[in-house]
């Protein structure tokens, strides 16, 4: 047997490690970027199966970019610039005091505005912004996930925030 030039991801335990480390990130990345209609769960599975098929040519340190690129391309093929709609959860995070009907209505309206405004953001802005705001990722982490510079992440998130605020006030 000839020894591979680099350690590839064909070993089950290495593959499993990569899955543990990146599957959730990949899923959230797809969700925030493309929304629900691309079936992020399916895309994650497809990307990992593709990784398994190409495990011999893929060194471990390239596995992550492989996964994100594949999943991204798969999703891009599917959405073809449809409007991205993110679902918001109806049930409120546990609140201590009962709310007035008026407050609830206002909140409902606000969420709808926010939903529309999020759809207006570019894919790049939305993915970075939501990973930061919702998943609580540091700018540095997002930069690593998306494979862009930290400065670019800051820029995207800031522009996204400004844009959202303006859009919501306008709507």
């Amino acid at each position: 047997m000839s020894k591979p030039l680099f350690e590839n991801v064909c070993k089950e335990e290495i593959f499993a490690q990569i899955y543990q480390k990146w599957a959730t990130h990949l899923h959230n990345f797809l969700y925030y970027k493309f929304g629900e209609q691309v079936n992020p769960e399916d895309k994650v599975q497809e990307a990992f199966i593709k990784l398994w098929k190409h495990c011999k040519e893929t060194p471990i340190d390239k596995a992550k970019s492989f996964l994100f690129t594949v999943a991204n391309n798969l999703s891009l093929n599917e959405v073809k610039h449809q409007k991205v709609v993110l679902k918001y959860q109806q049930e409120r995070p546990q609140s201590s005091s009962p709310e007035t009907p008026q407050f609830l209505l206002e909140e409902q309206e606000y969420l709808q505005k926010l939903q529309q405004a999020l759809a207006q953001l570019s894919d790049g802005q939305r993915e970075a912004f939501l990973l930061n705001r919702i998943e609580g990722k540091k700018h540095k982490e997002i930069a690593a996930i998306l494979g862009i510079s930290r400065k670019a992440v800051e820029k995207r998130i800031y522009t996204a925030l400004e844009k959202l605020r303006k859009d919501i006030d306008k709507i």
Binding site: A23, E36, E41, Q45, L164, R165, I168
Partner: peptide, 26 residues
């Protein structure tokens, strides 16, 4: 308004991704 926005954004959290279950399927 930033804070309000930030609070509202939590409603848009991605559905949970069940790593164990999904890995079995994979």
């Amino acid at each position: 308004s930033f804070k309000k926005l930030d609070a509202a954004l939590q409603h848009f959290k991605a559905p949970a991704f069940d790593v164990e279950n999904q890995f079995q399927k994979l």
